[in-house]
Design a protein around this nucleic acid. Structure first.
Lengths: 339, 339
DNA sequence: CTGTTAGCGCATTCAT
DNA sequence: ATGAATGCGCTAACAG
């Protein structure tokens, strides 16, 4: 049995409430130095640790936040999660991380679990098949911050990245190298991020007056195998694309690389590759990758701060969307088009 | 305000305790189907979600476990964490993940935080500078499982891997390729895992009658830069080693690769490399790596099960140490020694 | 079968 | 400056 407030109080010979007051000591005006010291000493001696559960129940504040992401194995989310945990630690918040694996049902389950545990707020990268539960969360005034993926018709604080612009920059780079047939490996479908990247792709085609070939847009999933399969399909096409932009993240890109290699093609000699890629392995790959990467720590920080503001402010904080830039790094996977 | 048991009870016209019973329905023998249904219906209608905090306080059981690892960005731990979270989810436990960053003080802080939050048990990959807090944890009978790193003089359930044997296998492979000057890039010092790997290295040298050169044993840290610096030092040595075994994990190995490249050396032509490496990028690197990797999911499972057994058993469960095998995969980073 | 009572450990309001 | 009383939401022991 752990020692409680009551134990400490009995030990010193005061009332539990006095001990409680000393421990929080907002207005020290109201406690005699003598008992204060005695209590502090007793706390040490008895090795008293406050019971967070009881406190949470009483104060209706758990000093816990929930963080729901698709998958912590994804280096993109891993880094964001790490940063948020760090900031949580610094600010006395515990963070509970949940992995949806892009499963909408799990997201809902986790959300309820977190609510039931009385978290003070939630940071969520939603699966985006459905948004009803998110709306109802907002209605209940649960502090909430969306990352990466937002619903354009729902007003809520969020942190996103400038996906469209990143792709335009990438296409521009390829165009400068003489590429005209640029394929787009979408990765997952129907996700805000991907939709925007695709949007950037389309805009770029228009801007640089390139012909749009629907067959050059492939990919439905976010796993290694999805990238592999989609790229396979791509490489069976008649006029082969001379470049691919992989927007599905690290795993999808790895799958794409495997497919390209298996088709006896060389990166970048036969085909150039630009990828949304966040792991630090990019420079060490067989062909060091030209990448679009994220300032992941920054994203974590923005999200945490946005949430903390909501939690700690008594009044409703107006929704705010922060957009974080991406980083374009040219390495060896892009080169001039074969003439 | 969320709806409570009381609200539901009032709505139906029964006593709160009845609602509670229905919701847990152990022995349904004791509740009339009629009220049961009425209550269930009310729960739905009022969208009642039980308050975990209150329940935890009352039952002295939080359905939460703590998981403390050095760093979730490390693919080794990331996968283990993911698996444990998954199993937690399946078993109705929430898991709180903490990253020590190899900081002993942080470990202690996290431990106290977890205790204070009333976790039902803890899985810990300790920093291993100190073990007092772990001993006192055991004395308090907190269910505990150590992973990866254990203290030989402390009896507690744990999951480890057969480090020494893995290295012997690696050395054997190199010896078969004709290598005689094999260096050992330790990575971090004074960690159970590393000590054992080094031990395996020494045993292997003896077994294969290779001369031991203290200068061939380098490395003190677990970061990219540590691997880079240690390898630099190694490559300044007079008779260059013909092979390196990197025992410091993914980041250290990446650092080593960078150093080797910068010295104008080729893997494996000039120098062979075997690494403890767990990310799935290994086959995609410039030189696909010959690796010793872990069955990380398995490790997570063993740890979780060991913990769950302790948590759910009423009587003390005898400490048990599970050893999980490693996987040796030969790729392109090892070859016959130059003659 | 169901209501009553009690209390987990704490913070807080009201006394004094 | 401190004690007493109350209750957060829930479960469990005991009645009936």
């Amino acid at each position: 049995m752990a020692t409680t407030l009551k134990d400490v109080a009995a030990y010193v010979g005061v009332h539990p409430s006095t001990v409680s007051r000393v421990l929080h000591g907002k207005e020290n005006l109201k406690i005699s130095k003598k008992t204060n010291d005695k209590i502090l000493k007793a706390v040490k001696e008895l090795n008293y640790v406050p019971d967070f559960t009881a406190r949470a129940l009483r104060m209706k504040k758990s000093f816990t936040i929930g963080l729901i992401v698709p998958d912590i194995l994804n280096p993109y989310f891993a880094r964001i999660v790490r940063r948020i945990e760090q900031l949580g630690f610094d600010n006395q918040y515990t963070v509970i991380v949940c992995n949806t694996e892009e499963d909408q049902e799990k997201e809902l389950l986790f959300l309820n679990q977190l609510i039931s545990r009385g978290v003070d707020g939630i940071i969520l990268a939603p699966v985006q098949e459905n948004s009803d539960h998110i709306v109802s969360l907002i209605e209940k005034k649960t502090p909430l911050v969306l990352i990466d993926r937002i619903f354009e018709d729902i007003k809520v604080s969020s942190v996103i990245t400038n996906n469209a612009e990143s792709v335009i920059k990438a296409v521009s780079h390829l165009v400068n190298l003489g590429h005209k047939r640029i394929a787009f490996l979408r990765g997952q479908k129907n996700i805000y991020t991907i939709i925007n990247r695709l949007d950037g792709y389309n805009k770029a085609l228009k801007k640089f007056k390139l012909k749009r070939n629907t067959k050059y847009i492939v990919g439905e999933g976010f796993e290694f195998e999805d990238g592999y399969a989609a790229t396979q399909k791509l490489l069976e096409l008649k006029p082969l694309p001379t470049a691919i932009i992989s927007s599905g993240g690290d795993l999808v890109t790895l799958g794409a690389i495997k497919a390209i290699k298996e088709n006896g093609l060389n990166i970048p000699k036969d085909i150039s590759l630009i990828a949304f890629f966040d792991s630090l392995y990019a420079p060490f790959l067989e062909t060091p990758l030209t990448t679009i990467s994220h300032f992941r720590k920054r994203i974590g920080e923005e999200a945490f701060n946005l949430l903390l503001k909501q939690i700690e402010s008594k009044r409703k904080v107006p929704a705010k969307t922060v957009c974080v830039d991406t980083k374009f790094e040219i390495r060896k996977s892009t080169t001039k088009v074969k003439s």
